[in-house]
Amino acid sequence: MDNLVLQCGCGQIKGRAIKINPADRTRVICYCKDCQAFAHALKASAQVLDEQGGTDIYQLPPARLQINQGLEQIRCLRLSEKGLYRWYAGCCNTPIGNTLSPRVPMIGLIHSFIFDPEREAKLGPVRACVNLRGATGQIPKSRLDAAPASGYIGKIMLKILGWKLGGLGRPNPLFSAKGEPLASPRILRPGETV
């Protein structure tokens, strides 16, 4: 297992993801409209989205995420009152990741926050392409064949259950012990930017 170097674009936020193993098989490309809206709101679509509007995400339990510098720079957006918590660097608008809630032990780290020169080897290949209906272009068949979405949701739900039972939901650097978000979420209106 390896550690993964994390850093925002300007270097004010630094951290690491610990105990990373390609065998975890939790790397996905998400093509949903909400992930696209998040990238556009931060004016980071060129750095985040692929040619078809996909976001490369590595899913891990919160206990494996450590922020060592710049915690005060972390901000949060939600696209609706009940939407995902979408975390970013307030200093430079680098997308950091997504969380469902403080009770769900999973963080989806966005590749723009992964600053490790050995990222590809440490994370392994993309295991699933999800939310395909939101794609803005034709996804190459070779990518879909290599990373089919079928069965992935069940697999990640089992992982989340294992993380919960294994106590990997805490500590969560993005939420307090009482479940309060580190930064008060701003509800983003359609088309609004940061």
Rank of each mutant, 00 (worst) to 15 (best):
N68Q: 11
S80F: 08
A177H: 08
P95M: 12
F175C: 08
F115L: 04
G154R: 06
K159I: 03
T99K: 01
G124F: 07
G167F: 01
Q59E: 12
G191K: 10
F175I: 09
A39G: 09
K14Q: 15
A63F: 04
P61D: 10
K122M: 14
S184V: 11
V126I: 14
G70C: 06
R103D: 14
R86Y: 01
A89H: 00
L60N: 06
T55Q: 15
Q69F: 05
L6Y: 04
C92P: 01
L42E: 06
V104F: 03
V194E: 14
I13L: 13
V104S: 00
Q73N: 15
P140T: 10
I187S: 10
N172F: 05
V5F: 06
M106W: 00
K159R: 15
I74E: 07
V5T: 13
S142G: 02
G97S: 03
K19R: 05
A89S: 14
C35E: 13
L77Y: 11
S184R: 13
G97D: 05
I160G: 02
D50I: 02
C92E: 00
T193W: 07
S80A: 14
Q73W: 05
P105V: 03
A177R: 14
A149G: 13
I20W: 02
P95Q: 10
A46N: 06
